[in-house]
Design a protein around this nucleic acid. Sequence first.
DNA 1: TATTGTTATACTCTATAACTATA
DNA 2: TATAGTTATAGAGTATAACAATA
Lengths: 136, 136
Amino acid sequence: MHDPLAELPGYALRRAANAMMSELSARLAEIDLRISDASVLLLLSGERTMTSSDIGRMLDIQRANMVPLLNRLEAAGLIAREPLDRKSMAIVLSEGGRDKLKQVRRITTAFENDLMQRIPAEHRDHLLPALNALWG
Amino acid sequence: MHDPLAELPGYALRRAANAMMSELSARLAEIDLRISDASVLLLLSGERTMTSSDIGRMLDIQRANMVPLLNRLEAAGLIAREPLDRKSMAIVLSEGGRDKLKQVRRITTAFENDLMQRIPAEHRDHLLPALNALWG
DNA sequence: TATTGTTATACTCTATAACTATA
DNA sequence: TATAGTTATAGAGTATAACAATA
């Protein structure tokens, strides 16, 4: 059939992202996390001390929307809020958070490998730089 | 800074798609359309007669979610519903819909060109086939 | 003055279940 | 028996405005 949308990279980008997100969501649901939860845990695995606002800026999540997200992670025992001064809070991984992070790494590594395997070899190495050029 | 997410294609895919969508949304807002509205108009430009369910299957939109979408397009005078039998309705472009479609084509063509220009030349031609491999 | 954390709110998109009528 | 169109509803994600307290 002739699909008038088949040649539009923007359309393909949307469909590919949607397919990827729904598959990743399903895999992360097995450890009771959402994609944004997992992103936060991965970000907190770095060396830097970060506040809620810092995390939001890095992940492009509004400050206001970080609140329920971090509440959820805190209620699950994965992070703790520690005062930096009387205004800001450091968000740190708890011991349970570090355990969960290992599971996140296992799942995301396998997932990214599966994604790349689906791409014909001659195109594979071009995807990441092309995508990064579209938002970095 | 060291960003633990920088090397994940899935993450880059999400960020690139979000950036693309918000820019395209803004451009389409100038002609009072949403992205899914524009997708439907582009799809209806093909030769085939299509029902609401057909469109939903092509665009991966649930049957139930097609209803408000098509109601909106009908209220804007862009499409009409014409009975095929006593059960199904053909969705057809009205004259206003064909005019709007020209504007959609103008905007999306310019947009896709802009997108591609942001990608370094050596990666450019690989994006569409790589993305299509992730959902087709 | 700018920023942090927060509350409240609204809008969009998406997913599911159920129903009627027709193929 | 399967499908079309529809209604109702709920869950996510996301955006904005406002506020008090602190840098």
